[in-house]
Write a protein that binds this DNA or RNA. Structure first.
Lengths: 207, 207
DNA sequence: GTAATTTCGTACCGTTTCGTACATTTTTAT
DNA sequence: ATAAAAATGTACGAAACGGTACGAAATTAC
């Protein structure tokens, strides 16, 4: 009885998924407060009332955009981090995959919706909560990956290395917004990955 | 001939310096776009036209606030980084001093004006430029301090360590906004400082 | 005293903001 | 056909927005 009998009234024509993609694009380019509902209406092609019906008010639209962005990260970048192999390579590939999300092309970057735009709107409780969830998720997955790469390390060492791994990613979002090029940050990510693995004693030379 | 003869018209009564302090407070709590001129007028006690006369329009007020915040950092935190002694201690003390600026008390944090709020408004060219200046300044001073602490290190090693040092600070601004406590981040700073100095071969144990 | 000069806030302007009431369109049910 | 139901955009409203013209207030110059 999945769709055996069609619904009763006028069939929906709105593609909420592609609309949400446009919403994410806009919010991560200009942040939460600087985007108006008219901007969102223009970008999605939906009328303002349609936006309300599909996503609720502006705040809940932004939180939904953060979730959609998180889904994209989980699908397109996290697998690179969790892939088997040397920690240094996994970290380096993860940063590269994240930067591919952050940048539209090699120069101009719409940036990271979560780490670049949410902090400035964290006085909104829902946004702060979702931001915190993002940070804790990244910390958690970093810890997990480092744990498997260095099982003999102390939990203290693992936690420190994980924090450095997360902090590197967070900083990339600000650096991208400041005008840094993608290749510049990809290099920085590779070198940071090497340093993190070195600090855990996973390579011969100190750096 | 400093103030030998008083100026001609009605004497100015506005304290632009304390007004700018209130402007910084407001912008770093809510970001650029979410703050209205009425908010600024209420916070400073100045009328909206007085704000214009003193600081120009909203955008130039925000840039002026970034500069004022940068001055505060240069006075209250940078000396701790440039102080002689072990690199690990200098870094740790610098992070602690920065976090003392970031936090009003141990729990709630108005955050960092530059790294937490500017990225979301970097589509404004003046803001992006000032943000970039902030990142490059931090990189530069980190490089300088690490250079003196590890003169035998290669420029490649120094640059990498400096980037990790800057990235740690940048990430603290997002973590503070996400609700992390000050003491939590002070600890994280101390451990990151140790890791950075370890990666340069400046301590015995790897971490 | 009177004019010139500078500082400052009241009051206003046009635009944009978020949010919604309501009519219109498109479908199914009978 | 006609009614019920669901989806959608036009059009509206009240409030907030950034910005400024202008007059009142306070001082010096003469």
């Amino acid at each position: 009885m999945a769709n055996s009998q069609r619904k009763r009234g006028r069939p929906a024509t709105i593609d909420t998924q592609s609309a949400m993609q446009s919403v994410v694009e806009l919010f991560r380019a200009k942040g939460y407060a600087a985007v108006s509902l008219d901007d969102l209406s223009d970008a999605t092609g939906l009328s303002r009332p349609s936006l309300y019906r599909s996503f609720g008010n502006k705040l809940s639209m932004y939180v939904a955009a953060m979730n959609a962005f998180g889904d994209q990260v989980r699908e397109e970048a996290v697998p690179a981090l969790l892939a088997p192999g040397r920690l240094e390579d996994a970290l380096s590939n993860f940063y590269q995959a994240m930067l591919t999300i952050y940048y539209r092309d090699d120069e101009v970057s719409p940036g990271c919706l979560v780490y670049a735009t949410a902090p400035s709107s964290a006085h909104e409780e829902e946004i702060q909560d979702r931001l915190r969830f993002g940070v804790e998720s990244t910390d958690s997955i970093m810890r997990q990956r480092i744990q498997t790469a260095a099982p003999e390390a102390t939990s203290h060492q693992i936690e420190t290395a994980a924090h450095i791994g997360t902090n590197t990613l967070i900083a990339f979002s600000a650096r991208a917004k400041s005008g840094a090029s993608k290749s510049e940050l990809v290099d920085m990510g590779a070198r940071s990955a090497k340093a993190i693995s070195a600090v855990l004693g996973l390579s011969e030379d100190p750096l």
